[in-house]
Amino acid sequence: MAAGGDHGSPDSYRSPLASRYASPEMCFVFSDRYKFRTWRQLWLWLAEAEQTLGLPITDEQIQEMKSNLENIDFKMAAEEEKRLRHDVMAHVHTFGHCCPKAAGIIHLGATSCYVGDNTDLIILRNALDLLLPKLARVISRLADFAKERASLPTLGFTHFQPAQLTTVGKRCCLWIQDLCMDLQNLKRVRDDLRFRGVKGTTGTQASFLQLFEGDDHKVEQLDKMVTEKAGFKRAFIITGQTYTRKVDIEVLSVLASLGASVHKICTDIRLLANLKEMEEPFEKQQIGSSAMPYKRNPMRSERCCSLARHLMTLVMDPLQTASVQWFERTLDDSANRRICLAEAFLTADTILNTLQNISEGLVVYPKVIERRIRQELPFMATENIIMAMVKAGGSRQDCHEKIRVLSQQAASVVKQEGGDNDLIERIQVDAYFSPIHSQLDHLLDPSSFTGRASQQVQRFLEEEVYPLLKPYESVMKVKAELCL
């Protein structure tokens, strides 16, 4: 049975990233139509530049190519590739079939990587351009969430054990800070992308030097003109047959890092959902379990974690691919890159769409948070109580021993009897502590235990987050809708 299948058929496997999760716009960027249309555009740009620099290419040939950029006979191309065992030459023939007058000058002087690699770089750039505003929107939604809850005390956790208090907004800023680093890295790697350009079979530009009869300047002009037509500021000066596969490492490393950030955020949300302090959106008709109707599973956060793990592992592909590119190139890269580049971007696209949807509907339960604080705060307040007693004339050592005994009794009630923490009640009825009984409410005010959390939130948002989001103001209103 021949390899390949009808990918629109229910009898043929289709990647869930495309069929179930990723956005239509990201799927289109990695589609065959987008790819092969870009090949034709690159052939047109090459012909236009070659004509401008004096090669015998007519206006009629150029116009014929322009008129057929979208006229792609995919069936013919597939048949040609089956016959020739070469995808680029299959599309040269297919393009030439609908451009008979231009057929002889299509791909003039070029090698397969002229269309293959340059198209990949265009796709990487455009895919990054799709991700950047999506990530900015996630940051914006979380920034709104953090600002609104900047002063809401909550129990902090280290080692997932109760620690000092923080605020809900401050905790959210930990998430935002990681995503801001990801946004900066995505922008950097996007701006650092260079075009492969017009380089020939081993990167020496020998074929173009021959076409222009040894004119170095025209060869350099050709490279520059096509690079500018493709919208790049610069091209690699040095290439082998391909652009260095280190570029793929750079791009997928940034995406993998984004995956790590999203995994951490969504894990926190899942843990908070278990504590009943916070939940992701839950639709009115949504079913959490087929057997347990009360369940409210954090399905979206779980999906993000599941896909983020996949995204983090994909960076190993370009690392290994770059390491086995012998001399000017081997074909070890080809099949692998067809999979890992598309999957990385479709996965990143999915987790950003999902995280935006989550961040637009996060639900906080202040009463649950308050109750958990009441359970733990008495123990945390013991040092403040000791200091207040010393100020009232008591002995630190005597007070410490009193607190120690009462704390152990209260802990026994919590752990052995399943009761509430009654340390404060014990202190309130103990005559030894009568000098500070009137101060206990103040000493137990949760806001006095959150330090500068709310001020940190305000400063972080104003100095770091809002300036970073400013270039994306025009796209901030787009909502994230999930079908599944």
Rank of each mutant, 00 (worst) to 15 (best):
D6P: 12
D6S: 08
D11A: 15
Y13R: 12
A18G: 15
R20L: 04
A22G: 14
F28A: 10
D32E: 10
Y34D: 09
W39L: 14
W43K: 10
A47Y: 04
A49H: 08
E60Y: 14
E64I: 03
N71G: 05
M76L: 11
A78G: 08
E79F: 14
K82H: 10
H86S: 04
A90G: 09
G104E: 02
G109D: 04
C113W: 06
V115M: 01
D120L: 06
L128K: 03
K134H: 01
K147F: 01
P153C: 02
A163E: 00
L165K: 11
T167E: 01
G169Y: 09
C180G: 07
L186D: 11
K187A: 12
D191C: 09
F195L: 04
V198A: 03
T201C: 13
T202Y: 00
A206E: 01
S207N: 14
L209E: 06
Q210F: 03
L211T: 05
D215S: 00
K218P: 10
A235C: 06
I238Q: 10
K246C: 09
L255I: 04
C266G: 14
T267W: 13
E280D: 09
Q286N: 12
I287P: 02
S290Y: 08
M292N: 14
R296Q: 12
R296V: 10
P298W: 13
C304K: 05
L311W: 10
V315I: 07
T321W: 01
D333E: 05
C340A: 14
F345H: 01
N353P: 04
T354C: 04
Q356K: 07
G361E: 02
I369Y: 12
E370R: 12
F379N: 00
F379L: 11
M380T: 06
A381I: 00
R396W: 02
V405M: 14
Q416A: 14
G419S: 01
E425S: 06
D430E: 15
S434P: 05
P435I: 12
P435T: 12
H437K: 12
H437Q: 01
H437G: 03
H442G: 02
F449W: 09
Q456Y: 14
V457S: 04
R459K: 01
R459Y: 14
F460E: 13
F460C: 15
V465M: 01
P471L: 08
Y472T: 07
E473G: 00
E473N: 15
C483T: 06
L484N: 12
